[in-house]
Simulated assay, not measured.
Amino acid sequence: MTRNINYDLIRLLGLLIIMVAHSSPPGWIFQLRNFGTPLLVIGSGLTYSLIFASRKLEIKAFYKKRLPKLIFPAWLFLTFFFLALYATSVVSDFEFPFSNEKVIESFLFMGGIGFVWVFKIYIILSLITPLAVYLDDKVNNNLKYLSSLLLLYIGYEIAVYLITPLLTGVYSTVFNSIIFIAIPYTILFLYAFNLPSLKKISIYFISISSLFIFIVLAYLKYTEAGYFVHTQLYKYPPTLYYLSYAFFAVNVIYLILRNIKISNDLTNSIVIWLSSNSLWIYLWHIFAFYIWKFASIGEIDSIVPVFVGKIFFMITFGIVFTHLQNTLLNRLPIENTTWKNKLLPLLTNKK
């Protein structure tokens, strides 16, 4: 398989845009970048479509490799993160900021500290990858494929409208945190598998249609509320107002990035390293977020210089600590086969 650096860029950009949201950006920046999760989903779909275009997917082997690669690093980081904060609270006047419930929810990727939900998205995408590969292989008619996805999405919107008012307690959690998250992002993931086969004019049409829907909905909500309504309010669960803007943005970004040619070897290697290590960079940026927060640096939110400083600090912290982690672990004089072949690949980008 020939690696597609453009897909690396799309996945990396999706994760970075999500990290920007954690940097207290001004409202207009927060809205402009409010397509990070769909872009991450599209990037993942494009990557898997390329990988399994020339390789047979062995479902059991895929799950056995992919799911631990997602779950184990996140759990390990969370364990270190909570223990570090607890130890700090014991030896200082610092109060441990999380309840037992928050800690448990974090390990379940169901809320908690509020950052690890992205792993839930990755797990969902991994679970449906065999289905996506099968459909991509069996359905060769683009119109039929996209029409089926559109009908599925319409059914999802109807279900959200009818079912959401009836949900309470644990049912509300299951539907709003799992089912009504899995369905729209599954549709986006399936769309990504079909995206490389679409003609440019078709993608233009899809982008313009999505933008038109968003503008109409934005106008209707503006006339009702008297001010511009942010799409973030319609992200949990994702519905048409949020998704129409995001779908427009991700298609435009795909059109732009797919034509980029990176011939410089150094630039290529940097992009590949960042993309390959993006999940650990993301995890370490959580630590940076709380360092900034507890140092009281970020008391003033939504000010551009503060926002720029915060995102620079978090991304730099994530990159530096990921690099240090990779360097230290790869230099450990451990010859154990289990460590080298199973554990080390989970903790670094080493294959």
Rank of each mutant, 00 (worst) to 15 (best):
I29A: 05
L12Q: 02
I51Y: 07
F98D: 04
F72T: 11
A21R: 01
L135W: 09
Y156F: 11
F189H: 01
I10K: 05
F193M: 10
I59K: 13
G298M: 07
I17K: 01
S207K: 00
Y145T: 03
F193V: 06
V174L: 09
A53I: 05
I208P: 01
I215W: 11
L146N: 10
L211Y: 10
V252E: 04
L195C: 09
L188G: 06
K199F: 10
I319W: 06
K221E: 05
I262N: 07
V139W: 06
I286C: 04
N194D: 08
Y48M: 15
R331D: 13
Y122A: 09
G36R: 03
I18R: 01
I123K: 05
K138P: 01
L329Q: 04
P68C: 07
V116T: 15
S177E: 13
S44D: 00
M110H: 11
N251V: 08
V174C: 07
F80Q: 09
D93R: 12
A132S: 11
I253M: 08
L150G: 14
I208M: 08
H323C: 08
G43D: 01
F81D: 04
I203E: 03
W339P: 00
T2C: 07
F77H: 03
G226L: 06
N277C: 05
I253S: 00
G27C: 04
H323T: 15
L16S: 05
L46K: 01
G309S: 06
I334T: 09
I104C: 09
V304G: 07
G298C: 02
L195T: 11
